[in-house]
Design a protein around this nucleic acid. Structure first.
Length: 419
RNA sequence: GUGGCCGUAGCUCAGUUCGGUUAGAGCACCUGGUUGUGGUCCAGGGGGUCGGGGGUUCAAAUCCCCUCGGUCACCCCA
């Protein structure tokens, strides 16, 4: 293939129709689901001061090595957002809305990584964040909202994994226990995991390297290190999920890569994915994040759903196909095009979707274009119509033939025929 | 950042093992068969410096080197 001069940057791609229509439809479904639960849309900027994201934690890879950072012309240190929770919480601190505050968002994020299946440098997420209540039922509302969204798309093979990381003290005690466990057996860990074991032992639990499997299996469980308070919170979450009849699996090794999570964490994976990147959504509680951003200490919980991966899961399950959006009418004009210009304009102003063909093409060619447009009806304007001041209407879907209609009544006739 | 695989028409791919007429097919596109009428059918047509550069050779899509791109996996995450 002759290389085009320019191509989309690595890890990005153009979304052409009909996939573009499908994405828009997905966001539409999402908006319906979350707005039905009282979430309102927040549209944060796509870039922030670098410091906003640094608050997410020094050991978070997303922040440490995957951010698109640059200095703007005013000397400000800016980063394209690698996720949106930080922006939402920053926005919360800036505007101090009344609590509880429930916001949803949709839009692209940017991470400098090597692309692979289901992982891109620019990727869309939809998500919600709820700030204020510490109520375990809020955790469950957030999880349930994601679950209902997947249901609305028609997805059946989604698995919900839940875990509790405990409060910050619990977490610290657990990390130290993990550290001891791994340090005692460093030799049997993979090379990469050895360094991770000292910097961020929790992350080792996420390793996919086969050499690490045994030591991960034998590692102490987070659930044994929960305080009574955290254990109680987690218990409430499990009970409420059960009463909502949302099936879940406890995954004590579910860590997640953003360091701000405490207590409840969860992840949705697709069972039908052949790809390694099988997480289609995830989230959790981040009670310390608002404070870290300089806002009044405010607990929060939320999730992000990956649009690209969710659509891949839909593909794998054969659900949520791209909507077909053909025009209603296609105008064929062999008299030069002025008639088509006027007729399409009139039809469009009356609310009909109308397209036409271009150039001095034969009627055969124009009819072929009409057929391919998917339009239900064709309006034909040739020399004889021009002389008699009429238009010919042809049904393109069935075999009901065609009829002659006065120029002045074309719109009302079409509206009646297309009903 | 590390490793595996792959780059031939707009798309999906033959051809590369063992170098040898003018590089093919299907789909898509255009024109005609049908001087006004689509979808089926038939005929014809346009479109490729075989990702790019260098090398070996009488001769390279085919062999060698470099490079760019894609893809999959690790890391990490959606």
């Amino acid at each position: 293939m002759a290389d085009p001069i320019y191509r989309a940057p690595k890890g990005t791609h153009d979304v052409l129709w009909p996939e573009s229509a499908r994405r828009r439809a997905l966001v539409g479904v999402f908006a319906d689901v979350v707005e039905a639960a009282g979430y309102t849309e927040l549209v944060p900027p796509m870039f922030e001061h670098v410091e906003v994201f640094r608050r997410l934690g020094d050991t978070t890879d997303v922040v440490r090595k995957e951010m698109y950072e640059f200095e703007d012309r005013g000397g400000r240190q800016i980063a394209l957002r690698p996720e949106q929770t930080a922006s939402i919480v920053r926005s919360f601190g800036e505007h101090r809305p009344a609590l509880p505050w429930k916001a949803w968002y949709a839009g692209p994020n940017f991470r400098y990584e090597r692309a692979q299946k289901g992982r891109f440098r620019q990727f869309d997420q939809v998500g919600i964040e709820a700030l204020g209540p510490e109520d375990a039922h809020l955790d469950v509302e957030v999880i349930a909202t994601a679950w209902r969204f997947y249901e609305c798309l028609g997805l059946q093979k989604v698995t919900l994994l839940v875990n509790s990381l405990g409060g910050s003290e619990d977490r610290a005690r657990y990390v130290s226990a993990l550290h001891d466990h791994f340090s005692a057996n460093l030799d049997s860990l993979s090379e990469d995991s050895r360094t991770t074991a000292s910097t961020n032992p929790l992350r080792v639990l996420d390793s996919n390297r086969p050499e690490d499997a045994d030591l991960i299996d034998s590692a102490p469980s987070m659930l044994d290190h929960l305080s009574d308070e955290a254990a109680g919170h987690f218990e409430q979450v499990k009970v409420a999920l059960t009463s909502l009849e949302i099936p879940f699996t406890i995954q004590p090794r579910l860590v997640r890569g953003l360091d701000y999570y405490v207590r409840t964490t969860f992840e949705f994976t697709s069972e039908v994915f052949e790809a390694a990147q099988n997480a289609i959504g995830g989230g959790g509680r981040y009670d310390g994040l608002a404070e870290a951003m300089g806002a009044p200490p405010t607990p929060g919980v939320g999730f992000a759903i990956g649009v690209d991966r969710t659509l891949m899961a839909c593909d794998a399950e054969g659900v949520f196909e791209a909507p077909d959006t053909p025009v209603d009418v296609f105008v064929v004009d062999t008299t030069g095009g002025e008639a088509a210009l006027l007729v399409t304009d009139e039809l469009r102003r009356s609310g009909l979707r109308a397209d036409r063909s271009w150039g001095e093409r034969s009627m055969k060619a124009q009819m072929r274009a009409a057929d391919r447009s998917g339009a239900a009806m064709a309006v034909i304007i040739g020399d004889s119509e021009r002389e008699s001041g009429t238009l010919t209407l042809r049904d393109l879907r069935g075999d009901t033939g065609q009829e002659s209609v006065a120029l002045s009544s074309i719109t009302e006739t079409l509206l009646a025929r297309l009903k």
